[in-house]
């Protein structure tokens, strides 16, 4: 199984763990991840405005290069995934955006959303299968873990199509696959406060702590996430007293490749 792989800038700096353990786990599971050549930052957030074309171009370039490789594109950072998947949807379904983006890029073959974008979690669930991961686990993680989805993996569900946006199970199923026990907490699919970590910490604090408090009240010994900014907010602003870790790190640990 060979995939194009988009790490994104945060995974090369502050969130190295999310990247490194994604790669080592993939290798252990027999999946080849080929890093997209000369990738650029996805832009961090998707711009919803119709007339914002330039902010979508870097994502289009990534999508095109996966298309040219003839492989599906795997992302692992929730924010990159959200941006790239939504831009891909625009290129497929929004003629206004796709025409202008293609005019600007002047590529030999215009891009029409051909690439299939999947998140690393979807790779685990749909391509490898949680059952097979369960079999590959060497060190079961015997902990009670609360999964934090945040908003980016799930919404808008019509585009992201990962899971039921209000009652998701992909992370809980993952937690079960690595031998741990999921703890369902309130607000697991609500926003952590996101980029307000920069401009208004009180907002980030209020939003993150709701989930953290609920998780700790429910007896979680650990919190799991797929997004560097969520991880930061839950830790720094949510005041988590239990470890907050990337799902890839736990996967690598379970597979014995950490």
């Amino acid at each position: 199984m060979k995939y194009s792989y988009y790490p994104g800038c945060t995974l090369k700096t502050k969130a190295k763990d999310l990247d490194i353990y994604a790669r080592s786990s993939a290798e252990a599971l027999g999946v080849e991840l080929v890093e997209v050549k000369e990738w650029q930052c996805c832009g961090g957030v998707y711009t919803t405005a119709q007339d914002e074309i330039a902010t979508k171009l870097s994502a289009v370039r990534t999508l095109m290069s996966a298309r040219d490789e003839g492989t599906d594109l795997v992302t692992v950072c929730a924010a990159c995934h959200n941006v790239i998947k939504r831009v891909n949807d625009d290129m497929r379904n929004n003629e206004y955006v796709s025409t202008r983006a293609n005019n600007y890029l002047q590529a030999e073959a215009p891009y029409a959303g051909e690439t299939r974008v999947i998140h690393f979690l979807e790779l685990l669930r749909d391509e490898i299968g949680f059952e097979n991961i369960k079999k590959a686990v060497k060190n079961p993680i015997s902990k009670k873990i609360a999964a934090y989805y945040g908003c980016l993996l799930l919404r808008p569900s019509s585009v992201m199509q990962m899971d039921n946006p209000e009652n998701p199970s992909i992370l809980e199923d993952f937690i079960k696959a690595i031998g741990a026990t999921p703890v369902i907490s309130a607000y697991r699919n609500e926003c952590c406060g996101s980029y307000f970590a920069v401009t208004d910490k009180s907002i980030a604090k209020r939003n993150s702590s709701k989930f953290v408090d609920s998780s700790e009240k429910n007896g979680a010994e650990m919190i799991l996430t797929a997004c560097p900014l969520c991880l930061y907010n839950l830790k720094q602003n949510g005041g988590a007293s239990v470890p907050v870790v990337y799902f890839t790190e736990l996967l690598a640990e379970a597979l014995g490749v950490k």
Binding site: C9, T10, V45, A79, S194, Y195, V198, T199
Partner: peptide, 21 residues
């Protein structure tokens, strides 16, 4: 920015905030 950030803050936060604001 210098006053707003700390060692742990991911780049993503800055990129996103600049994009939005």
């Amino acid at each position: 920015i210098p006053a707003a950030i700390d060692e742990e803050m991911p780049q993503q936060a800055l990129v996103a905030a600049f994009r939005k604001f």
